[in-house]
Each structure stands twice: as C-alpha cells, then as structure tokens.
Simulated assay, not measured.
Amino acid sequence: MSAWLEWTDTDARSWIAVPGPHDDKYSRGVLGVITGSVEYPGAAILGVEAAHRTGVGMVRYVGPRFVRSLVLARRPEVVTQPGRVQAWLVGSGMDAARRSFVLVGELTRAISSGEPVVVDAAALDLVAAHTGPTIITPHYRELASLLAKREIDVSAADIAADPSGWAVRAAIELDVVVLLKGASTFVADPVGQAIVVRAGTNELATAGTGDVLGGILGSLLATHASELRTDISLLAPLAATAALLHGRAAERASGGGPIAALDVAEALPAAIATLTGRA
C-alpha cells in the first residue's frame, strides 16, 4: 500500500466538472437515486438536494410514493420516470431488516448494472453484486457489520482505533473503493491508492450529513461516468474530492457555529465556486 496522500483544494479542483457552452443535462450526467423510506424520508431529500447543488445534469429518483412527493416538493426538477442513468446512489435512509423483495431487487439491479455506483447504509450487504465501478461509504459500525458478514472478527472500536488500516483491508477484501467516514475521511481502493481528507468541522457530526456526502459523490460519479467506464482508478480521487467538498461546504455553512445537514447542501454552490476560482 502506498503512503497516504493528504487531499487538498488543489488536488480536488481538477475533478470538478465545469459546464461548457455545448453541455446539456445528459452530458453533465444523470444520477439514479434509490434512497429514503417512509420511516426515513429525509435521506432522499438531502441526497437529491446535494446532488443537484454539486452540478449533476439530472436526477432520477426511485422510491415510495410518499417519499417521491416530498422530494418533488423540495426539488421539482427531479424526474421520477424510468430512463437513462449514468451512475447510481443507493441505500441511504433505509432499514435493511425491513426491505421488501421488490426493493432488494431494485437495489441489486442498480448495483449490478455496470454503471458507477455509490453504496451506502442499508444496501452495503448487497455490494457483492457489483459489476461496475463501486464506492461504499460506511461509518465505523457499518463497516464492522459488513466485514463480520464475511467472518472477519472486528468491532467498531477496532476500526475506530485504526481507520486507515481497516479502510485498506476492506477495499481489498470487498474489491471496491472504501470511503470510511469519520473526523478524518480515509479513501482506499484495491490497487493501492490511499487518500486521507481532513477538511471540515466537527459540526458535521449531526444527522443527515452522510446523506449529503452521498449526493455529492453520486453527482461527481455521474459527471465523470464516461471516463470511469475505461478507468476505474478515477474512483478514489473522486471520492476524496466529494469528501473535501463536503468539508468545505460545512465550514462555510457553520462559520464556527452549529449546522444542520441541509445547511451543508445549500452551501455547496458557493464552496464549489470558491474552489474552482469562479467566486
């Protein structure tokens, strides 16, 4: 494994696609989203909001009618009909123990579609079905649970004590890119890339901010979908860029005070403008 590379604004800048005069909603990327539930509808709203504010061309949302209505009330530009998708964000805001047969099928089809996919929360146990560029975004407890299913004896406390080491081991074991969330974010892939992101504020330790991170990352995968089809080594830098953007938006939203997850999503355009020199 290579030494850990600390990701900076300069590193991230080149991974943010700035639209040109000939771009349209399809060339900017279409993100399919299967998140949220009747019990946790906010995850869908937050992820969709963050994806739009990161610069994706279109979001297609798949979910319960009640959740769709809330998503559309917040973001009326969301499309809820089937169609072209260039990347997927799945699993946030769901209870794995309460997934229906239909939902498991939808999640599995997305993960096995061959398109780039961000797998979070209640879809993590389905990650073995992946066939395309795949990133998982667990916190310590989720990663411990996922590895336990593969008969690896590890606790959340073990991972918290050595997050970088466990990020690397999980990436190799699962053959995916791992973005391990925490005060520092560790990104590792199976072929040796290792990136740490220290941007952000401790105020990010609040409900829903992980859903915002998922939307940012899904958007970046969709905007780079064509490159990812031929070079999956781009996944780790994109994941690190998502984490850095998440942190920079949180810093801007906080100003030294408390924040809520939606504040972070709303701060993304200004954070991106500053990072890309357009502010």
Rank of each mutant, 00 (worst) to 15 (best):
M1K: 11
D11R: 07
A17S: 13
A17M: 02
D24S: 03
D24M: 02
Y26E: 11
V30N: 00
V30D: 01
L31E: 06
L31R: 04
V33K: 02
I34L: 15
P41W: 13
P41R: 12
A43Y: 05
A43L: 10
I45F: 01
A50W: 12
A50R: 10
A50F: 12
H52Y: 15
R53H: 09
V56W: 01
G57H: 06
F66W: 08
V71Y: 07
V71M: 06
L72N: 04
L72M: 14
A73P: 01
R75M: 11
R75E: 14
V79R: 02
G83M: 11
G83R: 13
V85M: 08
V85T: 15
V85Q: 09
Q86N: 15
A87K: 00
L89E: 07
L89T: 05
V90D: 07
S92E: 05
S92G: 11
G93K: 08
M94K: 14
M94C: 07
A97W: 07
R98G: 00
R99N: 07
R99A: 11
S100W: 12
V102R: 14
V102W: 10
E106H: 14
L107N: 05
S112K: 08
G114W: 13
D120S: 09
A122S: 15
A122E: 15
L126M: 14
L126G: 03
A128F: 08
G132F: 12
I136L: 11
Y140S: 10
R141I: 09
R150Q: 14
R150M: 03
I152G: 03
S155A: 10
A157I: 00
D162H: 12
V168H: 09
R169A: 13
I172M: 08
E173D: 14
L174K: 06
K181I: 00
S184V: 04
V187F: 00
P190E: 11
V191S: 13
V197K: 04
R198Q: 01
T201D: 06
N202L: 05
L204Q: 06
A205T: 02
T206K: 11
G210W: 04
L213H: 01
L213I: 01
G215T: 03
G215R: 06
I216C: 00
I216R: 03
A222T: 05
E227F: 02
L228M: 12
I232M: 02
L234D: 04
L234R: 15
A236L: 13
P237Y: 12
A242W: 01
A243V: 00
H246F: 06
G247R: 02
R248E: 07
G255V: 02
P258R: 07
I259Q: 00
A261R: 00
V264A: 07
A265I: 05
A265Y: 10
A271N: 05
T274G: 06
T274Y: 01
